[in-house]
């Protein structure tokens, strides 16, 4: 029947994360996309869901010594070390510029104590330019404390609860894959008030220069990203989706619509793109076009209809509410 023909343009690819509604399901990963401005010459930013800003901390941070990057098979190791001007300087000099971006801006907060997170989150979330906050409790590249939060269910709960008390805006909690049981951490984050979970941050790794007999990163260890970690990320999303009811932003090595679909089917409501932007800045827009074509071909009207479908048969009933597909 003519009425059943769906054109790709009609497909609804929007997503809701807590109070935040995004027209596109594509977030640009924190630390990979500057503040959006850097990519504006190459990408129509009005066609991406949101930019997650580079993490900001309470105090200025110089960041890690160099080298900070190593290209590795199917990915890269980085150890930037949260270089940022500190929240006060950031609010005074940088945040106002974000209002001019033609896309949603999500702030990212990192810290070294529960109090740090609450302090920085409250200040940043109070700004109109910032539509939601991602709590980066899983940076693997800062001396011990950084990732500790995401490795401990109780610490995760404490940080999320403290940040939750400071703002009503959508709170996304970014989880680490470097844990034994990511589902238990996810449950604590949800219970403490997270609106959504970002799954996953980078996987810890190391590379050694065999001529110089020394680590190839100034920080010794780093975080692995890119297609090398994609199966790890898909599994993490799958496990978290079975443990919580809040939406998941899936991330880890997504380069194509096919990759993105794995995450949606595993239970992610949105995706985040990081390293693939370094290969080709056109990737985020291409993925949305291809997702729409994929859904149109199958007669589906909304991207959210396929979320978690690879979980059929497992306990995740909320994922199927309102499913008419």
């Amino acid at each position: 029947m003519v009425n059943d023909v769906i054109t790709a343009r009609e497909i609804d690819v929007s997503v809701r994360l807590g109070k935040l509604e995004l027209a596109y399901p594509t977030l640009m990963g924190s630390g990979c996309y500057g503040s959006g401005e850097e990519y504006a010459p190459f990408v129509d930013l009005s066609k991406i869901g949101a930019v997650v800003l580079k993490s900001v901390t309470r105090q200025p941070r110089l960041g890690n010594p160099t080298p900070r990057l190593v290209h590795t098979p199917s990915g890269m190791l980085n150890a930037i070390g949260l270089q940022n001007p500190g929240i006060e300087w950031y609010l005074e000099h940088d945040v106002a510029k974000f209002a001019q971006r033609p896309c949603t801006i999500i702030g990212s907060v990192a810290g070294f104590s529960v109090d740090d997170y609450a302090y920085t989150c409250e200040k940043l979330a109070a700004r109109n330019e910032i539509k939601a906050i991602e709590l980066n409790i899983s940076c693997p590249n800062v001396a011990s404390e950084g990732e500790t939060f995401a490795c401990d269910p109780n610490l995760t709960a404490n940080v999320v609860r403290a940040a939750r008390a400071t703002t009503d805006k959508t709170l996304i909690v970014k989880l680490s894959p470097n844990v034994t049981d990511i589902a238990s951490i996810a449950r604590e984050a949800e219970r403490a008030g997270a609106d959504a979970l970002a799954v996953i941050n980078t996987v810890r790794g190391m590379a050694i220069d065999v001529d110089m007999w020394r680590p190839r990163l100034g920080n010794v260890t780093g975080g692995l990203s890119g297609p090398a970690i994609r199966p790890i990320a898909v599994l993490a999303v799958y496990e978290v989706a079975r443990a919580v009811k809040i939406p998941i932003v899936g991330q880890g090595g997504i380069e194509t619509a096919g990759d993105a679909l794995e995450f949606f089917l595993a239970g992610a409501s949105a995706i985040s793109i990081g390293t693939a932007n370094f290969t080709d800045p056109r990737v985020p827009l291409r993925i949305v076009d291809e997702l729409r074509a994929y859904l149109a071909k199958r007669g589906l009207r909304s991207l959210q209809q396929i979320v978690g479908k690879a979980n059929v048969g497992f306990a995740n009933p909320h994922q199927y509410e309102g499913d008419e597909g």
Partner: peptide, 14 residues
């Protein structure tokens, strides 16, 4: 330097 993004977005090439 080793670049990732090349456009100022990642602070890897400092």
């Amino acid at each position: 330097e080793t670049f990732a993004c090349g456009v100022g977005g990642c602070w890897g090439c400092v």
